[in-house]
């Protein structure tokens, strides 16, 4: 259909479009990170050229009132555990609902219920969960927040994993089963390799949502368990928005998360695909 040259110029065009989009996406991000290296007055004056300062990062990381490293650790604990729990539960549930012989109404009612749950405004949810957590002593604990975040992301994860699971050819599962594989073996060796990209994408989103979740994290935590968004929100004070420190902490919050996600994505996809035996 297309010669070497036109294929090449088509690839060039694609790269051009992608690069243009990348520039639009990245300018505000670069601007945010750069704001972390500026003085507040330089930022407020809208100066384009500035002498970088490291005081914002120093303040965020090491000042006496800032617990950023602690918040960071907390966010990692909550983000990773809640994502792992959420994805495991959602994958099993999606597979169960779409591939096992549940009565149709159970599937529909449950899926609709998760979606309705997802629509509850955070104000309403946070208060109710606080009361429950306080009653059983799970307020101000990681367990409470991990369960809360896993549940918050469960509807999305179940629906998304549902799409992936339905892509798995039924004949493949059945063939494996006729070959005598038991349930976990079919899941591990047949289903997971096929839905690996879906799992990776869903896991990234679940992690990011947990990483940035504010309303529930605020109510269920105190000083020792507070997460990064709770810490960052403190920079938007009444009477003073500390833009530069906010930007510095946002930069600190983005970059490792990004690295983690890229590694995680490769690892998840690779790890799961390797389960398949050709």
């Amino acid at each position: 259909m297309s010669g070497l040259l036109s294929a090449r110029s088509r690839a060039g065009l694609i790269h051009l479009l992608l690069a243009a989009a990348a520039v639009i996406v990245i300018i505000p991000v670069v601007w945010t990170v750069a704001a972390g290296f500026r003085t507040q007055i330089s930022l407020l004056m809208g100066e384009l050229l500035f002498t970088p300062v490291g005081s914002n990062f120093a303040e965020v990381l090491f000042s006496k009132t800032s617990d950023f490293l602690l918040n960071y650790r907390n966010s990692l604990i909550v983000g990773i555990s809640s994502t792992a729990i959420c994805i495991a539960i959602a994958t099993l549930a999606a597979w169960s609902l779409h591939r096992m012989r549940w009565p149709g109404w159970i599937v529909h009612v449950f899926l609709a219920w998760t979606l309705i749950f997802h629509m509850i405004p955070p104000v309403a949810l946070a208060g109710a969960w606080y009361t429950m957590a306080r009653a059983v002593g799970l307020d101000n604990t990681f367990t409470g927040l991990v369960l809360a975040h896993a549940t918050l992301n469960l509807p999305m994860a179940i629906w998304l994993m549902g799409v992936s699971v339905r892509d798995v050819p039924k004949e493949l599962e059945e063939a494996a089963f006729i070959d005598g594989a038991n349930m976990p073996a079919v899941l591990w060796h047949v289903v997971l390799p096929i839905i690996a990209p879906g799992i990776a994408a869903t896991a990234i989103l679940a992690f990011v949502f947990s990483w940035n979740e504010f309303a529930v994290a605020l109510t269920l935590t105190m000083k020792q368990t507070a997460t990064v968004p709770v810490a960052i929100a403190k920079f938007a004070q009444d009477f003073e928005i500390q833009y530069t420190q906010m930007a510095a902490s946002a930069a600190l919050s983005i970059l490792p998360a990004l690295v983690l996600l890229l590694i995680a994505q490769r690892y998840i996809v690779k790890g799961l695909t390797q389960g398949a035996i050709k």
């Binding site: 009361t131 306080r134 605020l218 403190k234 009444d238």
Partner: peptide, 24 residues
Amino acid sequence: ELDVNPFAGSLEKQRNSVRAKQGQ
């Protein structure tokens, strides 16, 4: 001990605490 909150969050946490059986 000081529990320091974002401005918008302080009222929320106070309400939650004072409305519980035993306050934080």
